[in-house]
Write a protein that binds this DNA or RNA. Sequence first.
DNA 1: TTTCTAGAATGACAGAGTGTATCGTAAAAT
DNA 2: ATTTTACGATACACTCTGTCATTCTAGAAA
Lengths: 194, 194
Amino acid sequence: MPKLWNETIASHRHTVHEAILTATAELVSEHGLLSVTMSQIAERSGIGRATLYKYFPDIEAILRAWHERQIACHLHQLGELRERGGPPGERLQVMLEAYARISSGRFSHDHAVLELAAVLHTGAHVVEAEQQVHDLFKELLTEVAEVGGLRDDVAPDELATYCLHALSAARSLHSESAVRRLVMVTIAGLRPAR
Amino acid sequence: MPKLWNETIASHRHTVHEAILTATAELVSEHGLLSVTMSQIAERSGIGRATLYKYFPDIEAILRAWHERQIACHLHQLGELRERGGPPGERLQVMLEAYARISSGRFSHDHAVLELAAVLHTGAHVVEAEQQVHDLFKELLTEVAEVGGLRDDVAPDELATYCLHALSAARSLHSESAVRRLVMVTIAGLRPAR
DNA sequence: TTTCTAGAATGACAGAGTGTATCGTAAAAT
DNA sequence: ATTTTACGATACACTCTGTCATTCTAGAAA
């Protein structure tokens, strides 16, 4: 029996859609990636197995959708910070700290599965999603460069790549202060050459 | 019929073992991670399916073994560089460039699956393997710190984590010169505060 | 209100993969 | 020569998969 039934069909489908993504994320973090099955996902989502196939063709598609939801969420968080004014140098620091915090993720599978998704033979589609985050950083770094706060011997594009990867180290750090030090070190790499 | 038969049993088992790992890596890079099956691996390895189970209990175990082989290979490469003398500062640069080159991996799945393995619900075992690489860097950084070539407001331990992640950005870069610039930027983050 | 219909949910089915157990054979070790 | 070991093959019960035809319901039309 379908437990979840909202007013309209559209909202119902949306609810089920979300439930599937959440259930999948839970199962992956509980039992690992390779042992997750469509059957388990259907059961945990509270729908019939056959119904699941009306929403997603296979597990890879589900993980892709989940990954996109995560990226969208991160972009939203980072985008809000971008609204706030202030000198580019300060905004850079705020942004880097925010991203580091996101990377360190409440439950560690956040970022892990995120990087993982890039391997799932997905190719272009996933890369495109992460490209948006990359571009956000690239634009901010360009602004910083314009006020002379950035080294000029490396393009903002490459520096953005450097930032994203360096900050992903936050996942391996276990204290709030360590993350702050990581951001400090990362920024030191961006400063103009002496 | 068993195609591969060497002199001794030990060497035979070793040959089969390697063949399994290689076949699995190929299949993963061809068809993605989730669609690889024990049946396919057995066929490509040239052994019977039941025989495969005498070597590995499941796909996850195979990927774990493959991951360990990769790490061992990387450690060997990095270890050789460590033998060579010279001032710690220079050795650091050589080491970082070597690791960046390893990360950028000839065929991209090298590093990708490497990170992926960390998510495969393997937990401690895989982390331990990567810890060795981390320790190698940590020791080298400690030496650099002793001659005053390192910032002293962040522990070598955390700086090693920073290095490994920052250099993993090499995978996203497409030119040799870009990788060199990445190493330069990464090192800039390690220098003593002005 | 009652009827109608698009589409949501489902059970059932055939095909594939899994893990294990057994057996006969051939090569290695003693 | 005899024992030990590893192999391939086969078979089994089980789970997972992908796709039917069918049933049921929400929301619109009469």
